[in-house]
Design a protein around this nucleic acid. Structure first.
Lengths: 329, 329
DNA sequence: CTGTTAGCGCTTTCAT
DNA sequence: ATGAAAGCGCTAACAG
């Protein structure tokens, strides 16, 4: 069933049907009513593909994320989807797992389908900007990065100041009297790097210069946090505060500390990052850095929408995280 | 840049270009090479829209879910996306929030774009099958429900036996000696209903007939779990075991029990549901029912793919949850 | 093996 | 206010 069928049944031309379908003017009330009656009883659905063929945008947004099973990405992707949906766009989603090849495959696919815009969620996508295989696809449609940045003509960023976020955690711990701090780095992204940098700088600011030696590397998981603590305690180094790069890792840190007979926060205070549900499930509830994924997502959507609709001016923005104090520090 | 440009530059016809593009036979190695060279230096991207216009499938799958911020849905959606991606499909995602209107809007949109298949994740979508506004869109493409069922000619299900899941929890609690059990219902879906039914039946099986009076209603959240426990304790009823419909709610239950000075599991044992990361973050780690979202998703993908490619036979399937025993019960 | 051509279903001028 | 017709970029049937 297509527009010709409707036109025939209504005794008009396809132009007229098209006009009533798209609420264009120049149709008599009578004609419009006749067409609408036919429309109502037929179960005709216009073909968006044909509409796209005729040069109209398909109103779809491509979202690339590492893994929506990570709550932080889930919250970001959720907000992006909801906001674009509200604006009449559909979103297509890909979990690249950080795999360059997956990202490229997907970018090619969405370019072939003429996506109207692209959102890259996470600093891990920064590398695509200079990737000869990927970059061409990032020039066909406007691109916005959530907490990332690439240098391409039509790409913009909504950044989060993770250095500041980590510094907030350090300052809070020092204010409660902690002096022997450590930082848990649980992933190798620019964002994680920024957190470490914030940690080191904040220590320097407090006159402690060996921050670089106080960074613990581990995996992003409960087990990762546990292992980092076990290794630290085994080293015999003094510790009374731990800044973690993720709530989930922090929960492992807390668990291992308690298992070792240490009290949190009395003996060792712990901070998480992301202010996720994990922070509230954890016992004691985690003091955590809120890096505002919903706000970031919202700004990404607004930015991308104005890029697509060419209602300028546009500019990249940076938002500041905040510390949410609970029981672990 | 389109297929005509390539054809002209290579000095061949568009058919030939189309043939090399799609690896069809009947092209001399020499001709193929010539076209491929032109292809390589041009940054031509074929238009999937035009291809769709010519009758080829666009290879997109629409996934409807309640809210991917809920880990169980995130895991399901993640697996669906990954598996379809591997098979050369793209997935478009909508978080309906359980809103009928959102589901309908989205179904209309994806029908206009000729989605090749639809996945409905969650029993909340069961009602769409008999919804006159929604059902027509569920007839245009094959539909698979994850843990749901609708009665439409081209719709199939991958079901989870949640009655059995809840019964497993009850049996485990009774085996540890619990006698005064309660069940926390934290949402109003058929799936939640099935869990309650499983709870009641398992009690009956053990000679306890007042199961229906042992169901506590609350919200699906930490606070929901806490409130349920507070109300229960205030009522003065004896309790030594609580079966929860969700890990997140169970974590609130545990927290409130401990706050009331009760030990988990010694005084009151608690079971969660979904075997999510929350179960592992919670202290004590939750004994939880694993309802296998990855397996469900995988089966949905296989089912839908065979429906799309018409490689039968198809049939709905039911999978059985398993209990994962940890420290809370 | 290669080229010509007729659609696919819509939007949009341009006539009338 | 309405209709005729061109064109969007591709696939595939058909002709050569």
């Amino acid at each position: 069933m297509n527009i010709y069928d409707i036109a025939r049944e209504a005794g008009v031309s396809i132009s007229t049907v098209s006009r009533v379908l798209n609420n264009k003017g120049n149709v008599t009330a009578a004609t419009r009513a006749r067409v609408e009656r036919v429309l109502a009883r037929s179960n005709y659905t216009p073909s968006a593909i044909a509409r796209g063929m005729a040069g109209k945008p398909l109103r779809t947004i491509a979202v690339l994320t590492v893994d929506i099973r990570v709550p932080h990405y889930a919250r970001t992707a959720y907000t992006i989807e909801r906001e674009f949906s509200r604006r009449g766009y559909e979103v297509s989603l890909c979990n690249t797992g950080g795999e360059r090849a997956e990202a490229i495959r997907y970018l090619r696919a969405v370019t072939e389908k003429h996506a109207d815009g692209i959102v890259l969620v996470g600093s891990i996508f920064n590398q695509l900007g200079s990737d000869p295989q990927a970059a061409p696809f990032l020039r066909e449609a406007p691109v916005v990065l959530a907490n990332g940045r690439i240098d391409l003509p039509n790409s913009y960023s909504v950044l989060v100041d993770d250095r500041h976020g980590a510094a907030l955690a350090v300052e809070h711990l020092m204010a409660r009297g902690c002096r022997d701090l450590f930082c848990v780095r649980d992933v190798a992204t620019e964002s994680a790097e920024a957190k470490c940098e914030g940690f080191v700088r904040a220590l320097e600011h407090a006159g402690i210069s060996d921050g670089q030696d106080r960074i613990l590397d581990t995996g992003q998981s409960i087990a990762g946090g546990e292992e980092a603590v076990k290794a630290l305690l085994a080293s015999g180094r003094r510790v009374d505060g731990i800044v973690c790069g993720e709530d989930i890792t922090a929960s492992g840190v807390v668990r291992a500390l308690r298992a070792a007979g240490l009290r949190v926060p009395q003996d060792v205070a712990v901070t998480g990052y992301n202010d996720s549900e994990y922070a509230r499930v954890c016992d004691p509830a985690l003091t955590s850095v809120d890096n505002k994924p919903e706000l970031v997502a919202m700004l990404c959507v607004q930015l991308l929408e104005s890029l697509i609709e060419k209602t300028g001016p546009f500019s990249s923005v940076t938002i500041q995280p905040e510390l949410v104090v609970r029981d672990s520090a």
